[in-house]
C-alpha cells in the first residue's frame, strides 16, 4: 500500500534545457510520457463525462424507467444511500479498534522489527483477499456462526432498536455484512495508523518512559495524541472503501429495496448502492441501466467526499 501520509518530496531534476537534449529521440520520449500523463487525466474526465451523460438525465426519470418499480430516482437513491452509509458505519465500528491495536502491535508493542514485518505481511495478505472470497466466507462460514448470537442478542437486548424484531435465521443481516466489510477495511485503516504511529518523535516516547510512564501510559500520552489525525484519516479512507464494496455485501446481505431500518439482525435489511447495482444490472435494460449508472454517480460522489475529507485530515497530520 502506498503511503498516504508521506509528504511529497520536493520536485527533483532541473527542468528546461539540458546539455545533450533537443534531439529527435528526446522529443519523442518527452512527448510519449507527456501524452501518458494527459491520457491518465483524460480517462478520468471521460469516466465522469460518460457517467453524467448516461446517468444524469435518469435523476428526472419517472416510473417505468427505473429498476425495482421505483416511482422516482430519489425514492430509489435515498434508502440505498442510507444502506451504504449504515453498512459502512457498522464496518467502521468493528474495524477501528482492532486496526489501531494491530498498528500499535506492529510499531510500539512489536517485540522485534521482524514481528512488525510479519504483521505487515499478514495485513497485506488480508487486504489482498478478493471480495468475492470474503463474500463466500461471510455467507457460508460467518453467517451460520452468528445466527445463535443474533438469537441471544434479540432475547436479551430487544429493548435496543438495533435488536428488536424477529432475528434472521440465515444470519445474512446488516450486522454480518458490516462485519465482513469491517474485516476487509481493517488492513487499509491499520496501514495508515501504522504509518502515523511510526511518525511519533522517538524523543517524545523516550521522555514519557523516562518519566516513569508504563508502556500504555506512554502510548496514551505520546503516541495516540500525535497520531490522532492519522487515525481519523485512516478511518475516512477506509470509509470510502467500505462504501464502494460490492460483491461481499451483495452476497452476504439479504436486502429489501426502499427499506430504511436500524435493525441489524433482521431478515429484511436496507440494500447498499453498490450491491443493488450489481444485483439489478443483469435484469435491467434501456433506461433502467441509465438509472443504475445514475446511482453509480451518486455512489462515486459519496465515496469521493469521504476520501477527500480523509486526505485533507492526513495532510494536516503531516503538517503538524
Amino acid at each position: 500500500m502506498a503511503p498516504v501520509l508521506a509528504a511529497p518530496k520536493p520536485a527533483l531534476p532541473p527542468t528546461g534545457d539540458t546539455p545533450g537534449g533537443g534531439g529527435a529521440g528526446e522529443r519523442a520520449f518527452s512527448w510519449g510520457v507527456r501524452s501518458a500523463a494527459i491520457a491518465v487525466a483524460a480517462i478520468l474526465v471521460g469516466v465522469l463525462a460518460f457517467l453524467t451523460i448516461r446517468g444524469g438525465p435518469s435523476m428526472f426519470a419517472g416510473a417505468g424507467d427505473l429498476p425495482a418499480r421505483a416511482t422516482s430516482f430519489f425514492q430509489l437513491a435515498g434508502p440505498l444511500a442510507f444502506g451504504s452509509l449504515w453498512v459502512a458505519a457498522i464496518a467502521l465500528a468493528f474495524a477501528t479498534l482492532p486496526a489501531v491495536g494491530v498498528a500499535l502491535a506492529a510499531t510500539v508493542y512489536a517485540p522485534s522489527p521482524r514481528f512488525g514485518r510479519f504483521l505487515g505481511a499478514v495485513l497485506d495478505l488480508l487486504a489482498a483477499v478478493p471480495s468475492v472470497v470474503f463474500g463466500l466466507w461471510g455467507l457460508m462460514v460467518l453467517a451460520p456462526l452468528m445466527t445463535p448470537v443474533y438469537g441471544w442478542l434479540h432475547d436479551h437486548l430487544a429493548f435496543l432498536p438495533f435488536f428488536s424484531g424477529e432475528p434472521s435465521v440465515t444470519g445474512r443481516t446488516a450486522l454480518t455484512a458490516g462485519m465482513v466489510v469491517g474485516v476487509m477495511i481493517l488492513p487499509i485503516m491499520a496501514a495508515i495508523c501504522r504509518e502515523s504511529f511510526a511518525l511519533t518523535p522517538p524523543a517524545l516516547m523516550e521522555a514519557a518512559t523516562a518519566l516513569g510512564a508504563t508502556r500504555w501510559e506512554m502510548v496514551r500520552t505520546a503516541v495516540l495524541p500525535t497520531a490522532r489525525s492519522g487515525i481519523v484519516a485512516g478511518g475516512m479512507l477506509a470509509l470510502g472503501r467500505a462504501l464502494g464494496e460490492t460483491m461481499a455485501v451483495a452476497m452476504v446481505l439479504s436486502a429489501t429495496p426502499f427499506l430504511i431500518s436500524f435493525n441489524v439482525i433482521s431478515p429484511e435489511n436496507p440494500a447498499t448502492i453498490a450491491a443493488f447495482i450489481a444485483s439489478a444490472f443483469p435484469e435491467s435494460a434501456g433506461r433502467q441501466v441509465d438509472a443504475l449508472i445514475g446511482l453509480g454517480l451518486v455512489l462515486f460522489a459519496i465515496s469521493l467526499l469521504a476520501s477527500i475529507a480523509g486526505r485533507r485530515v492526513a495532510r494536516k497530520a503531516v503538517a503538524r
Binding site: A37, A41, T246, L292, G296, L299, F300, S303
Partner: peptide
C-alpha cells in the same frame, strides 16, 4: 499538467470498482 494529473490520480483511486464497470459499460 503535473498537478492536474496528480489530482486525477487522487480521484481515480477512490472510484469504486463497480463505478469503473459502469463507465466502461457506458463507453
Amino acid at each position: 499538467l503535473a498537478s492536474l494529473t496528480r489530482r486525477a490520480v487522487d480521484i481515480m483511486v477512490s472510484i469504486p470498482s463497480i463505478v469503473a464497470g459502469l463507465a466502461a459499460y457506458a463507453l
